[in-house]
Design a protein around this nucleic acid. Structure first.
Length: 441
RNA sequence: GGAGAGGUGGCCGAGUAGGUCGAAGGCAGCCGCCUGCUAAGCGGUUGUGGGGGUAAAACUUCACCCAGGGUUCGAAUCCCUGCCUCUCCGCCA
């Protein structure tokens, strides 16, 4: 959520920044940027209208506060009169009218605040100045590469062919049990999934991340806190009765650990790592990645989440991205890091690096991790603050998170990168203690 | 699922025949004083959010005693709903 005060004082700047990500901010801007993609456009977003509401809010607060003050003073008088057994009927009658007015003003105020909130909750974050301006994923910028894609002296197979060969992933039966976009891991496949989970958690905890195992069903407040709601309900699985949402990433429960809390400066930074299953509707992705493990309704992921002081958050983003890269390096998987441009960055993020792993079966890089700095966007929504030593008042923390890594896609990368001519799959050195073998054959 | 108890400030804990309660008291914290050090002691101070005000403060006002409604001139105190916690019984991984 962006700061209404900031918006009040810098509305032009903010609308300019939003334009870079393809969000109009005001209907009059619409013609100025006709070439932008429409995925983030929202006809209801009108910041000028919001500012009008905000003006009225301030006026109504003044009116209501004045009346409330009068009521407080007079009510006290009435109390005194009554104690002295004196008549207060006139004052009571007057206050009856005052209370009616207050009620009306408070109702209007409540409506204004609700409307403002609806607006604010669907305005995306402002991109950081270092984020390249661009309209969509074609304008993302590669910033570094690690490793070299292996040259095969045979045509490399897709991971689903390799998996089928060894009977370690059973998509047909998964479809029978649940449906499309589910997988059934068996034998060494199941073991690989578990080995990766432990390897990633161990690697992260050895770097000072505290291990968390959170709820994977969460309430609406948590989903709103991290930014999934209200705008992206269609992408979530929801349980109707009682109402719960299945998390699409551990980011949600783990960031919400400190919702509505005031932390001490000395506690920061806080580093968490968590394994969870993740659930996504993948609405609108029909026809994309229909085979294999790449796009599933349920997948496993190890996530890292940070709560930091504002002045450190961009350093922390670099470190966090480096931690995710380290997992890939330890596994010997070639990858590249890209900076998402303003048109491709996520709703809540101020800056995002995607890490893409090389997949020989697809002959291209595919996203395996996404590392973001949300600055105070989530903290403001979730009301996560801290108090500086010796200073009064509070500030919002900055939150960050990144996958380290998506486990299903890591399985894909290992199967495809480590396949051998005879169909067997070598296990990366770092994983052997967890697998108890060096080869899937 | 059945039967009860309860949710007050960083913590503990008063406060129910509604009236001057943002809330007694204690602890912890902070600032002074004092004792050659420490402890004890003395005085003061210490919440969050919104509005006004200011260069920034000071200052001022409104709201907040789980949340949301209601009754009333006036509610931490009364009524309703929800959420959460705890105890007992049943059931259960």
């Amino acid at each position: 959520m962006i700061d209404i005060k900031l918006l009040r004082e810098n509305s032009e700047k903010i609308m300019d920044a939003l334009k870079k990500r393809g969000v109009y901010g005001s209907p009059k801007n619409r013609e100025e940027i006709p070439a932008m993609p429409d995925k983030q456009l929202d006809g209801t977003l009108d910041i000028e209208q919001l500012l009008e509401l905000e003006k009225e809010r301030i006026t109504r607060i003044k009116e209501a506060d004045e009346l409330k003050n009068r009521r407080n003073v007079v009510s006290e008088e009435i109390g005194k009169l009554k104690q002295k057994k004196q008549d207060a009927a006139g004052l009571i009658a007057e206050m009856k009218g005052v209370s009616e007015k207050i009620k009306g003003l408070d109702e209007r105020l409540k409506k204004i605040e609700e409307d403002e909130n609806k607006f604010l909750l669907i305005i995306p974050n402002i991109p950081h100045e270092s984020v390249p301006v661009g309209k969509d994923e074609t304008e993302n910028v590669e910033i570094r590469k690690w490793g070299t894609p292996k040259e095969f002296d045979f045509p490399p197979l897709n991971h689903w062919d390799i998996a089928e060969m060894h009977g370690i992933i059973d998509f047909d039966r998964a479809a029978k049990i649940a449906g499309a976009r589910f997988s059934l891991m068996k034998g060494m496949g199941a073991r690989l999934e578990r080995a990766l989970m432990n390897f990633m958690l161990d690697t992260n905890t050895s770097k000072g991340y505290k291990e968390i195992f959170p709820p994977i069903l969460v309430n609406k407040e948590s989903m709103t806190g991290t930014g999934q709601l209200p705008k992206f309900e269609m992408e979530l699985f929801k349980i109707a009765d009682p109402e719960f949402y299945l998390i699409p990433t551990a980011e949600v429960p783990v960031t919400n650990i400190h919702r509505d809390e005031i932390l001490n400066e000395a506690e920061l930074p806080i580093y968490y790592t968590a394994y969870t299953p993740c659930f996504r509707r993948e609405a609108g992705s029909y026809g994309k990645d229909t085979r294999g493990l790449i796009r599933q309704h349920q997948f496993n992921k190890v996530e890292i989440v940070k709560f930091v002081k504002p002045e450190n958050s961009y350093d922390e983003l670099e470190k966090l991205t480096g931690n995710a890269e380290d997992i890939l390096q330890k596994l010997g998987l070639p990858y590249r890091v890209i900076t998402l441009c303003t048109g491709d960055i996520g709703f809540s993020s101020a800056k995002t690096y995607d890490i893409e792993v090389w997949l020989p079966g697809q002959n291209r890089y595919r996203e395996i991790s996404s590392c973001s700095n949300f600055e105070d966007f989530q903290a403001r929504r979730a009301n996560i603050r801290f108090r500086r030593e010796g200073k009064k008042g509070t500030e919002f923390v900055h939150t960050l998170n990144g996958s380290s890594l998506a486990i299903g896609r890591t399985v894909v990368a290992i199967l495809e990168n480590y396949q051998q001519k005879d169909g067997s799959v070598l296990i990366p050195e770092a994983l052997r203690p967890y697998m108890g073998t060096d080869l899937i054959k």
